[in-house]
Design a binder for these strands. Sequence first.
DNA 1: TTGAAAGCGCTAACAA
DNA 2: TTGTTAGCGCTTTCAA
Lengths: 325, 325
Amino acid sequence: MAGVSVATVSRVINQNGYVTKDTEQKVRKVIELLHYEPNAVARGLAGKQTGTIAFILPDISNPFFPEVARAVEDVAQAHGYTVILCNSDDEGHKERSYIEVLKKKYIDGIIFASNTMGQEDMQKLYHIDDLPVVALDRAPTNQTCSVIRSKNYAGAQMAVNHLLSIGCRKIAHIYGPPQFVTARERLAGYQELVKKFPWYSPDLMVPGNFHLDGGMKAAEQLLRAHPDVDGIFAGNDLMALGALKTMSRLGIRVPEQISICGFDGIALTAVTEPELTTIAQPIYEMGATAARVLIEKIQGNDTNAQEYELEVELVERGTTRKKVT
Amino acid sequence: MAGVSVATVSRVINQNGYVTKDTEQKVRKVIELLHYEPNAVARGLAGKQTGTIAFILPDISNPFFPEVARAVEDVAQAHGYTVILCNSDDEGHKERSYIEVLKKKYIDGIIFASNTMGQEDMQKLYHIDDLPVVALDRAPTNQTCSVIRSKNYAGAQMAVNHLLSIGCRKIAHIYGPPQFVTARERLAGYQELVKKFPWYSPDLMVPGNFHLDGGMKAAEQLLRAHPDVDGIFAGNDLMALGALKTMSRLGIRVPEQISICGFDGIALTAVTEPELTTIAQPIYEMGATAARVLIEKIQGNDTNAQEYELEVELVERGTTRKKVT
DNA sequence: TTGAAAGCGCTAACAA
DNA sequence: TTGTTAGCGCTTTCAA
């Protein structure tokens, strides 16, 4: 110790315990002088907090997630945390193996955007009750896990209402894999609103896979069965873009002949021409909120689970336009 | 120790030092029994290796990077490493602050895809000579840093040759920010090949920003100055997509009136209609190679810097088509 | 071949 | 208010 003391330094650095202004000054000076940097790993060992959180998602290549990841990292960074990225491909065994590794590394908390395991599994199997967890888009089943979601049901209805309002008279829906809550909610929102119409028919709802190709195929199938469809609400933007592609290939004009509305609000919706009308989730905000909530939990405030339901917004663009009749 | 020994366990786990088959068996059994999991943080403290690498990139929201990140994470994961994600926005101070944090955390190595600092800075300022580093897309200036790149110059010429071969007779180039080597190399490749033609003119090269809007504006500007351009080679896919958008807005048919070729091979090139012809880099492969090389360095083999130059490939799609004359 | 013990660098309880 | 010291859980000499 160039100055005088020993682990009073610790007190200075952590700003806890009693220290005289005087000695504090001294210590800080020496710290400065020596370019001293506390060793994070040692602190981790001693304090069981590493200033690291993990973000487990299905696949960072899926265009929805980079923006979320960016938000998570931004907020984490701002609070002095570092984030570990984990691609689970929605496979349970990958999630599990990540969790094991992460726990060994004294991770401080986890943000889950991957859907495989029920919360119960997580708790039971991995004893992460103690570990702060926040989830994106799934129902909370335990007390320690907060959830960030957005208004899928209401959003779906906004989409349908928008299509109705511009004059569509037969609206179909391409829905995502039913194992995702988001897909189910959006489907339900559509169905509820639409079932009262005379043109309603269950096979106006066709399954997709939340990807481009799924949207393309679903749209083809749809048009074969219902050539008179004049509006499509897709369960996410990727499938909507797929549908748009199919239209383009079949020589069907959008929005003149068929209007298309997506869901998510990913950046890609602005690259096509016409640009895609969509129900935009506050994607960045969702990631940022998740990180914020997680960090608050880690730091001890706000222990109980909460559900945050963010607003969605209709972004009207080229793939939908008022019909001139 | 439930079995018999003490830190022989360490030897067993790390498979080093002498241990009898017999005691090894015993130890393993107890490990199994107790569900013992070595504590990674403690190992980190003791051994100065944490099994964690960092991936510093400009922005994970930029569509080029998710696929790289995915590759890095896949390979890391396969080798028992965990990856920390860092968005630098190409700002030096962010890179620096990350490096500081990462060093404190005993990170084992860094993959750099961010371009701000010269290697010299990195070495001089942050003493990361000891730390294994591999860079994506930049010239190596020091001995310890390997570089992964792809054939930008040759790729640019493939693009131009392709446009020539389908009958384009006046080919423009939208180039990226000159501070990026990749942008400079692609520009050089274009220029070298094109300067011998009578139609060549320096203002056929217009600047873009590697983003969609930059491509859109550049294309507008270009067409104003040279309405007779019939081929555009953009420095990356995003700008090419921007150019495509501009064409679509101006009612110019692609590929009939103007052909467009991009560079990178990102997934987005398949969402538009027509789909974008592009010079595809092996994006995933680049990330995977970076991770592989880094891990090899970390593990001691292969200490010296190498340059890996990966092949690119022409992916012919809808935005270019043989002119019928 | 195995055990004892000294760290790795920091935090926190306990004395002083 | 500050110093001592015992861990945190593992690796690694050095002896035995």
